[in-house]
């Protein structure tokens, strides 16, 4: 499978402190990749940069055969104002943005697509409920329904299962696997190594730099995990300002 997203010497900084440091590599088309690593390893920064939400300070993200418009992004739960006054159905309809934009009407087929997406995440009959009245797990189901409606070839998930109950996690993981079977490229930031081993064929172990990247079984070894932790701790105490490629 050819590369879909190529990272070229990517450095992402906040206030000149590197979050991701000279990272190169590629996500293949149709791959299902977990991005794991210690806290502050730059996992979220990386997928924000790929999604075009944060500009890299050095290097670039190159798309082959897909544009940024083909990319559906699920932010961390904390990034969404849960008290926002909106109905479940309207949240799901936002998934049509790529086709409907700001002006085109959302009628007929688009509403049916939204209703069937809600059915697929097990939320039949929730259409008119306020988004804020749902539990954390149900809210995540709604956001996955929005991803279903968006129907993008490239899907990026930032900590999709944090604070989500185990049954919802299992249901949503089935959707992720379905996307993989359909040939979509999925990249997810995750914490649970067991979950990664079971469901994600490929893993990028990140500690600002790539510790290992490839088949999950080869990446998630004890040595690699220890190396990642050591690297991340070294970064914290050592020089914080990027001085170019080491």
């Amino acid at each position: 499978m050819p590369a879909l997203i190529e990272l070229r010497d990517l450095t992402i900084t906040y206030d000149r402190h590197p979050a991701v440091h000279h990272l190169s590599g590629q996500f293949r088309q149709g791959s299902l990749t977990a991005v794991v690593g210690p806290n502050g390893a730059g996992k979220s920064s990386l997928i924000k940069a790929v999604a075009g939400l944060h500009k890299p300070s050095q290097g670039e993200v190159v798309f082959h055969g897909a544009g940024p418009r083909d990319l559906a992004y699920l932010p961390q739960a904390a990034a969404i104002d849960e008290s926002f006054p909106i109905s479940v159905f309207d949240v799901v309809l936002m998934g049509h943005w790529r086709r409907a934009g700001a002006f085109r009407p959302m009628a007929g087929a688009m509403r049916e697509a939204a209703a069937s997406a809600l059915h697929n995440v097990g939320l039949d009959g929730f259409e008119h409920r306020p988004f804020g009245s749902l539990s954390a797990g149900q809210r995540q189901r709604v956001l996955f329904a929005r991803l279903l409606v968006a129907d993008c070839p490239l899907i990026m998930l930032d900590e999709p299962f944090t604070a989500v109950d185990s049954r919802t996690t299992a249901d949503l993981l089935r959707l992720v696997e379905r996307w993989h079977d359909e040939g979509r490229t999925v990249i997810a930031v995750l914490h649970d190594f067991e979950q990664v081993r079971r469901h994600f064929p490929e893993t990028l172990l990140l500690a600002r730099e790539a510790v290992a990247w490839g088949a999950t079984a080869k990446v998630l070894t004890t040595e690699n995990l220890l190396a990642a932790r050591a690297m991340s701790e070294a970064w914290d105490s050592e020089a914080d300002i990027c001085r170019g490629a080491a």
Binding site: K48, A51, G52, L53, G67, P68, R69, L71, A72, Y73, L74, P75, A79, I80, D81, F84, I86, D90, V91, M94, W97, R98, G101, A102, F103, R146, A150, C152, M156
Partner: peptide, 22 residues
Amino acid sequence: AVIFRGLVAECFDPSFLRALGA
């Protein structure tokens, strides 16, 4: 009336829209 949908979507979750290139 013109910006309503965009403004609501942007208030609710700015990252989703921006990732789609809006």
